[in-house]
Amino acid sequence: MALSDRPLRGVLFDRDDTLVVDVPYNADPARVVPVPGAARAVAAARAAGLAVGVVTNQSVIAKGMASREQVDATNARVDELVGPFDVWELCPHDRDDDCACRKPRPGMVLRAAERLGLDPADLVVVGDIGADVGAAEAAGGQGILVPTARTLPAEVAAATTVAATIEEAVALVRAHAAPVSA
């Protein structure tokens, strides 16, 4: 399974279980632990001239378990340990809120593309569940699934592109890179 041959200009990462170890509803910067290889993968994407960003569902806000400020502080810690990122997009809504931004809907990917000045088709979303890949595809981009223990077998089977690690995912993107700085 591989990406299409379209030149790529950016990569958007899911946060939890893709860049950092998933701590359910985490809004505590002290609990942020990078996934092995995440910082190297982001650095490799940057070195290839790709725009980098994060698209993350954060229903902890809608559930009233944390404030936007707490989530922003947690994201700042991710940025410090794994980034820096050119753009952050987050969905503060819950599953039943019927918003346009919660993955697998395309809202965050479309906003990130706009903020980066890129066509969504120039982007890849790297994530650990089908909703991440679905958001990329719904926006007109591509997705790479990096399965974890919570990834469903059906999500793996449905994914067009699967990588064993975040570093392998970025290597696939780099192979199709058309740097933003070009």
Results as ranks from 00 to 15, higher is better:
Leu152Arg: 15
Gly53Glu: 01
Ile61Leu: 01
Glu114Leu: 11
Gln142Gly: 04
Ala136Asn: 09
Val35Thr: 01
Arg115Cys: 06
Arg105Thr: 01
Gly37Met: 00
Asp132Val: 00
Leu116Met: 14
Pro84Ser: 14
Glu137Phe: 02
Pro104Lys: 00
Gly141Gln: 01
Val71Pro: 03
Asn57Asp: 04
Ile129Ser: 12
Asp79Asn: 15
Trp88Cys: 05
Ala45Leu: 04
Leu81Asn: 15
Ala27Ile: 02
Asp122Glu: 14
Ala149His: 14
Asp97Trp: 03
Arg111Asn: 11
Val54Glu: 07
Ala48Val: 08
Val109Lys: 06
Ala44Lys: 09
Met65Ala: 14
Trp88Gly: 08
Glu69Leu: 13
Ala149Pro: 07
Gly143Ser: 04
Leu123His: 10
Asp122Tyr: 07
Val55Arg: 08
Arg95Cys: 01
Met65Asn: 07
Asp22Asn: 15
Pro120Gln: 03
Cys101Asn: 08
Ala135Gln: 05
Gln58Arg: 03
Asp72Gly: 06
Pro36Met: 01
Pro104Val: 03
Ser67Cys: 11
Leu110Phe: 03
Asp122Cys: 06
Trp88Phe: 15
Asp132Arg: 00
Val126Asn: 08
Gln142Trp: 06
Glu89Gln: 15
Val125Asn: 06
Pro120Lys: 02
Ala47Lys: 10
Glu69Thr: 14
Pro29Lys: 05
Arg68Asn: 05
Val133Arg: 04
Val20Trp: 13
Cys91Lys: 01
Val82Leu: 10
Val60Pro: 14
Ala38Asn: 04
Arg102Cys: 06
Ala112Met: 10
Ala138Arg: 12
Val133Asp: 05
Pro147Leu: 08
Gln142Ser: 08
Met65Trp: 15
Asp119His: 11
Ala73Cys: 01
Leu145Pro: 02
Gly127Tyr: 08
Cys91Glu: 02
Met108Gln: 12
Ala47Thr: 03
Gly134Arg: 00
Asp28Val: 10
Ala113Ser: 06
Asp28Leu: 10
Asp122Phe: 03
Leu152Met: 12
